Amino acid sequence: MRKWTVVLAVLAMATASLGMAQQNLIKVNLQLKWFPQAQFAGFFVAKERGFFRAQGLDVTLLPAGDQSPIQVVQSGAADFGTTWIADLLVARERGIPVVHLAQIFQRSGFTLVALKSTGVKDLCKDLKGKSVGVWPSGNEYPAVALFRKCGLTSSLDPRAANPDVKAVSYPFDPSLVFPDKVQLVSAMTYNEVNQIAGLGYDESKVDVFKLADEGINLLEDLIFTTERVLNERNFKGSGLTGRQVAARLIRASLQGWDWAVKNQAETVEKYVLPFCGNTCKGSGSRADAKGHQTWQMAEIAKLYNAGATTKGWAGFLAPADFQASVKLLRDQGILTKDPPRQAVDYGPWEEATGKKAADYK
């Protein structure tokens, strides 16, 4: 009996220690850029497989609401967020002290889709006189950059009296405008391209123009925060600085993304479908929920497994890619000056990975 008493006492102490450890987890809110879907698979995996917890973090993944991730993080309602690099740099120029921490997607998935019957073969030559569906709230910047790179004015520019291109803003569901109201429509490789196919316009009926192939490789999903969060000396009373918490978040997130990309089928089945709910299927997609998310996961993996990731530097923003984005945005007048040095902080990523940004080749 004495032996079992000792065993039970040890078990009770272990259970109590586990409970205390869970109570001591640091609560972190991560604002996602869109509704739950495979676009955020790595974060779902990091949460459900305990990678965040192993770093001492209790992470709540917040789906998109009426506000942009930058607004939510700036307000303090979230500590970190995901967004696109153009949106982050424009916000920075407008005085919002957001900071780029880690680059998840290493290639842009932004496309313009047109019916083959429209005769659009070369964007710069054939866009004039066309109507183009674009997204609001900073998601239009890649299309704007393309228009300006091609020397075309658009209705997005209030100074253009007779614009070459009519931009039609639409709320992300291509069926609302394509092909009845616009000849070309914005579409991500991993989402709307499949939705458009589901509307009856598959690869045999459309041309998909990837903006990255047109020299508009404005990188998308990244992790960011504000200078205020990074400068916290005692993040939410945890005893850790904001920079230390950022490093832990990055470390667990990259672990989740690596696992998700290597185990796509299991990721979709166990970690995406339970999260995505009504957004699983995608409006108009040609497949059921599982089919659409499987498509999306495969396309997302291509954006993750590119650039720096292929060199073993997942999450790293290559300086050349950053400078290319800045130059493109400046050349097109979307930015009026170079962003300050504080717009990108490699420190948390370096702490998370053990690598030094200066060693990247």
Rank of each mutant, 00 (worst) to 15 (best):
A252G: 15
A252F: 04
S253T: 15
L254R: 01
L254P: 12
L254E: 10
Q255E: 15
G256Y: 07
G256T: 05
G256C: 13
W257I: 09
W257Y: 15
W259G: 06
A260K: 01
A260Q: 04
V261E: 02
V261L: 02
V261K: 08
V261Q: 01
K262P: 06
K262C: 04
K262A: 14
N263F: 02
Q264W: 04
Q264E: 12
E266M: 11
T267Y: 00
T267P: 03
V268Q: 00
V268G: 08
E269G: 07
E269V: 06
K270V: 09
K270M: 12
K270G: 13
Y271V: 04
Y271K: 02
L273W: 09
L273Y: 01
L273M: 12
P274H: 08
P274R: 09
C276Q: 03
C276W: 07
C276F: 00
C276S: 03
C276I: 05
G277V: 11
N278F: 13
N278E: 14
N278S: 14
T279F: 10
T279D: 09
C280K: 06
K281L: 03
G282L: 02
G282K: 00
S283D: 13
G284W: 07
G284H: 11
S285Y: 04
S285K: 00
R286H: 10
A287H: 09
D288S: 03
A289M: 06
A289P: 01
K290A: 14
G291F: 02
G291M: 03
G291H: 08
H292F: 15
H292L: 06
Q293H: 01
Q293S: 04
T294Q: 10
T294Y: 04
